[in-house]
């Protein structure tokens, strides 16, 4: 018996034991998808937020359209638009040597989740950066800081504290919505569970999957609370609302 069959064995749950290894590897796919898309999305989101705050008018408009579109349509629709829609232009992708990317459901899901979470994260960063008092930026400029220094030393350290909680919520949302990757034939945690249910018709397997998702979300929530407490230790006051500023 391998380690991934153990939980099912201990619980005396035959289906969980038989599909334990598939569910474990599905969990790994879910974690990979979420970790990669959140990280890539974060980098893209920062660029979008900066363009929306400081860029030329046409770029600001384009970025506003991007965030409106990807926040205003269901992720399921975006995933299908990429996996089936872009995937249908096979001759084109083959001619530019990108077919290997659009052929794989994993890459399509990764792309869909990345551009979707980037749109949401961009709005979070934009709000956080805009919440800083104007005087600080003027003061930094008066001190002769370059634009990059201003960003690195003054804006980002404060904006990240404001953004941390909503970014954490966005990470949790991404974990939850990643379940729809199972609808493009990907065996993530949800996909593996669906397979186990389809073959056994044992509904309790879904409850175990829900418990795994809940555990994942709860662990992240706790870790984020610790990080937030660490980052805001300098401004510890009795008034919880004072921390936001």
């Amino acid at each position: 018996m391998t380690w991934c069959e153990a939980p099912g064995y201990w619980l005396g749950h035959e289906v969980l034991q038989n599909y334990g290894c598939r569910i474990a590897s599905g969990l790994l796919v879910t974690i990979e998808l979420v970790a990669l898309s959140t990280t890539l999305g974060c980098a893209i989101a920062l660029c979008i937020a900066l363009i929306r705050l400081k860029g030329p008018a046409w770029a600001r408009g384009a970025m506003a359209a991007y965030t409106t579109f990807f926040r205003g349509t269901p992720l399921l629709c975006q995933l299908f638009l990429i996996y089936y829609g872009l995937g249908s232009f096979r001759p084109f992708w083959q001619s530019v040597d990108l077919w290997w990317f659009f052929r794989e459901p994993f890459y399509c899901a990764l792309l869909a989740f990345t551009i979707n979470t980037a749109a949401y994260q961009a709005e979070i960063f934009r709000g956080a950066i805009a919440s800083l008092p104007r005087g600080q930026i003027e003061a930094a400029k008066a001190l002769g800081l370059s634009r990059f220094q201003l960003l690195r030393l003054v804006v980002m350290p404060q904006a990240l504290i404001v953004a941390l909680r909503p970014l954490g919520n966005e990470l949790i949302t991404t974990i939850k919505v990643s379940a729809i990757a199972s609808l493009v034939t990907l065996f993530d945690l949800m996909g593996a569970t669906k397979l186990a249910f389809a073959r056994s018709f044992d509904l309790s397997i879904y409850l175990y999957a829900a418990a795994i998702y809940l555990a994942l979300v709860e662990i992240i929530r706790r870790v984020l609370a610790l990080i937030e407490a660490h980052l805001t230790r300098h401004s510890a006051t009795d008034n919880p609302h004072a921390r936001a500023l």
């Binding site: 939850k176 919505v177 199972s182």
Partner: peptide, 11 residues
């Protein structure tokens, strides 16, 4: 709030 909506729907 923690369980995926798709999973809730299936259950």
């Amino acid at each position: 709030r923690g369980a995926p909506e798709l999973l809730t729907l299936y259950i």
